[in-house]
Every structure is written in C-alpha cells, then in structure tokens.
Amino acid sequence: MKLLDFLRGERKKSASVAKERLQIIVAHQRGQRDQPDYMPMLERELLEVIRRYVKVEQDAISISLDRDDDCSVLELNVTLPRS
C-alpha cells in the first residue's frame, strides 16, 4: 500500500505528519497538567497489579482524574487482549 502511494506520488507531506503527532502528544501533556504528582506512580503500580493476572501491553492502560466541585472520579481504562 505504501509502495503504491509512493508510486502515485501521494506521499504525505511531512508537515502534516508533524501536526498530527503534535496534536496527540500535546493533548496527552495537557491531560497530565492538572493531575496530582502521584498519578504516574499510581499508573505504573496499577499496571503491575493487572499484569500479574493478565498479559497487557504498556500502552493498554490509561488513567485519568476528573474533578467536579464536590467529588473526583478516577477513571481507569484497560484494554484486555482477546482471549
């Protein structure tokens, strides 16, 4: 497929690749901006626990903390492999 694109001369411009990559990484950075300092550690340890039972990849887990006025919600998302 890539070869076909190449032959057709439809190579994606490098600037648009840069933009897509940046949008993802910046969104990720902003998500971490307001979170407490213990979050990366918490994420790592949760991943360890889950890995004791299921074989999951490093990036199969996402964790976020949403704060409302009177309560906080810790959201944990794990993509499990097909068994």
């Binding site: 411009k13 490098s14 600037a15 648009s16 840069a18 933009k19 949008q23």
Partner: peptide, 15 residues
C-alpha cells in the same frame, strides 16, 4: 511551509 515540509503558523497557533 509552501512545500509542505514545515509546520505552518496556523497549525502552531492551533496546537
């Protein structure tokens, strides 16, 4: 930028 090899200013401002 015109050539598509550099981020344009709108993209940077948007990001």
């Amino acid at each position: 930028v015109d050539h598509g090899d550099m981020l344009n200013l709108e993209d940077i401002r948007e990001i």
